[in-house]
Design a protein around this nucleic acid. Structure first.
Lengths: 341, 341
DNA sequence: TTGTAAGCGTTATCAG
DNA sequence: CTGATAACGCTTACAA
């Protein structure tokens, strides 16, 4: 038989301290408005009973939760972990609690998660990338909860964003690949449908080709889902075609690592036989052999800035504006000039 | 000027549909108890108004939130990500929402996070490892929220656990190291203070030594915080001592990868000059060169089982019991016999 | 099958 | 500085 011990309430504390519930509430929220003596009585009672305020009740009465929600595509890898950590640290510093949910790259699930977080009273929401069902944005608007979009930057979208220009960043990398002499280029990309970051990176590669007077017809693009093994499988597809590329540009580091791994397993030397590049500069990029040439994204800075911006939005401190994070090329060993055949 | 648009409530929906609030509530919670016709009117109204139930109100009225909280030491790496993903998927299947918080390996922060999650109405809590301030457990008990401990297994603790025997698992690995002929063994460990998983792994190494009639005096242990760079630094300390080890057992894969990296940078061949082993078998372990010999932990299975167990605990389905996950040795290339000097 | 109404635990507005 | 008391939005007996 389980005793259904009941959790102490404000009223219990009030009774124990011999004051009204209002006074207890004040002690907890605006201690300066209560005389020191009573305050002690109350805090003692709180301690003795092990009282914790009921969040639901608080939420109803106060309309603020000091909670920020973030929905990320996946927790399974480091891409979002770094930035999110910084995001959460800064939020914590400002008195907010971060609640994280993952959408597993499924728009439908994301929508569901957003509703969940809003229902839970998130004061603000962090989303990755702009592209999603417009209903979501109008829903958020009617619910009056501010959204910040991160991991991408755009001044053309109505939402405020803190992130980097995926297109330009990838263009810079692709230009370097071309500069080194590659003309047959393969691409291993994430799935572009419903993912603006992916499609922008793709567009960046085409920009680089166009700017160098190269036809984009030569470009072979494999879209695949996220993962080491997927990168490996895509590598096979690319190399087993009639026209083998001399360089493979990957949409992110994880795909690139998968490709490198498979390349070496099949006896290709990287970069002598085939150059491979990544995007994101996760920790893994430096560890892999050869070290990965990739686009460095300052995740920590992005997370920090996102936290500051979103907190300000929640607190209504004037109107915030989008902020661009600068990426840079991390030139390492996995990219080299093509060898003559 | 911001229009303070107000969020629709149950009552608004009821009015719009021409029914009572009770009926709307029923439509949402027990649809079968409402006639099809009315149900349609209601759902239409819900749709039209973009209504979302207020979680706080729901929480107060129903005393159940269908929320499970999990507090993990860090989101920054794959160790917990895999298991957590499985945990969340299974939970979702059963109608629960997972809320994740990270403690950054700080007991104080963990305590805070636990209180936060409980206050938010978590129906159950997942914690990593047993060891923590006993106050926490008594708090959880008075609050009547069930706890499940994961990533470790013990029948001696009062809490129910789903995980593996860290001590035996590490012992098995250490025995293999000894079997291959190593007598000078170094250890790079996480910080054991307040972390039972770490200290159990350490104990496992000593067990192996003892069982083979080897003195534990020879064992040099470096404790360090979590990270690639920390693993590298610890490697230096170990190798710069007077007695160089021929094998280094690391408390986890991340430290091991850091050590391997540094070893190679300093010109050591792995495993010819120095053997290095890990623990966890994260994805990285297979990718690193040489591939890491490590303890394989079936994270997915653990997460799944943890979800099932905790959900049952919450739902009071009889008394659950602890469950042991079996680990196995992943013998790869980073461990080899010592070469004669 | 549906409606009425009594809580649920806080905060906030008024008086005192 | 402190005490009543009215919200807050929902669920759930209980009635009809």
């Amino acid at each position: 038989m389980k005793k259904d011990r009941t959790v102490p309430t404000l009223e219990d504390v009030a009774k124990a301290a011999g004051v009204s519930t209002a006074t207890v509430s004040r002690c907890l929220n605006t201690p300066d408005r209560v005389v020191k003596e009573t305050r002690k009585r109350v805090t003692d009672a709180v301690e003795a009973l092990g009282y914790t305020p009921n969040f639901g009740a608080r939420m109803m009465a106060a309309k603020r939760t000091h909670t920020i929600g973030a929905i990320i595509p996946t927790m399974e890898n480091a891409i979002f972990a770094r930035g999110l950590q910084a995001f959460q640290e800064e939020l914590h510093r400002r008195g907010y609690t971060l609640i994280v949910a993952s959408s597993a790259y499924q728009p439908k699930l994301e929508k569901e998660q957003i509703r969940t977080l809003v229902a839970r009273g998130a004061d603000g929401i962090l989303l990755i990338g702009h592209e999603r069902d417009p209903d979501i944005y109008s829903y958020l608007e009617t619910q009056n909860v501010p959204v910040l979009v991160a991991w991408t930057y755009s001044t053309e979208k109505p939402q405020i964003s803190v992130g980097f220009d995926n297109r330009l960043s990838m263009r810079a990398l692709a230009e370097e690949v071309i500069r080194q002499g590659h003309r047959q280029i393969g691409v291993i990309s994430g799935e572009s449908a419903g993912n603006d970051r992916v499609s922008q990176r793709l567009a960046g590669i085409q920009d680089a080709l166009n700017m160098n007077g190269l036809s984009t017809d030569k470009l072979r693009v494999i879209e695949t889902s996220y993962g080491i093994d997927e990168g490996a499988a895509a590598f096979d597809k690319l190399m087993d075609a009639d026209q083998q590329p001399t360089a493979i540009i990957c949409g992110n580091d994880v795909l690139a690592v998968g490709a490198i791994h498979r390349a070496q397993a099949r006896g290709f030397r990287v970069p002598e036989d085939i150059s491979i590049t990544g995007f994101d500069d996760i920790e893994l990029a430096k560890l892999v052999r050869p070290a990965l040439t990739t686009v460095h994204v300052p995740h920590h800075q992005m997370g920090l800035k996102a936290a500051v911006t979103l907190a300000d939005m929640v607190e209504n401190k004037g109107s915030q504006s989008s902020y661009e994070i600068e990426t840079s090329l991390a030139v390492r060993d996995s990219l080299g000039p093509p060898t003559q055949t």
